[in-house]
Amino acid sequence: MTGETVIIDTAARASLWLQPHRIVLILIAVGLVASAAFFMRWDWLPQYWEMGLMGIWRALWILAVTCALGFMIAVPVGLAQAAGSIWVAAPAKVFCTIIRGTPLLLQLWLLYYGLGSLFPQYPWIRESWMWPYLRQAWPYGVLALTLSFAGYEGEVMRGAFAGVPKGQLEAARAFGMSRWKIFRRIWLPQAFYRALPTLTGETVLQLKSTPLVATISVIDIFAVSSKVRQDTYLTYEPLLLLALIYMAITGILVFAFSRIEARIPVKIG
């Protein structure tokens, strides 16, 4: 527990962790969960669990798509701020400031209600192939969450790109690598390793932002729990289960990222 560096095998670590007071606390927690399962009403579960799984799937899908797209936007945004001329750095900076300076809920509603009320006025949009998508809610949710992730992660990537030692890039140039190859082989991987610990946090934050899409009528797991609450007039049960589901997803995410982090070379720069 203190600063001594002692090699502890797994069994000893488990016994260190499982101190007597922890056993009592765990028993209390188990008792609380058991009494919640016993005394609260869960008879609505069989009716809604299929819908709930659909909702979880949709939330995870939104999370994956918006993080992937957002990261793709974040790389040029970060690079523009770290190395670009003022003509690309300034717009990127403004983009990050605006995204980070306003609430996501407002951005979401601006896109959904604002743009959504704007598009139908143009006949060419209504006649185009995009219209069936633009009439639905989820593209606006995906767009808002993507831009939000890009804004926050762009700022992280700016620091990560700037943090790669100059000597690495100079060495690559001395080897005669083209600019694109330097970026692909040296700059981006090292910046990505640097950004990875914060990427975990950003992804968890993004997961916690996904329930906002329920406010524009996308049926994710949060919306399913709201529907259960309206149908059954129960307040706590659906919300508690919802909190548990989000905690489980967060735990899985953090674990997965720690496995990825363990794989990257430790000594960088």
Binding site: K208, T210, A243, M247
Partner: peptide, 10 residues
């Protein structure tokens, strides 16, 4: 670990 929106409602 829990979204703010859920915590606020709860």
């Amino acid at each position: 670990a829990v979204p703010e929106l859920v915590l606020i409602l709860l």
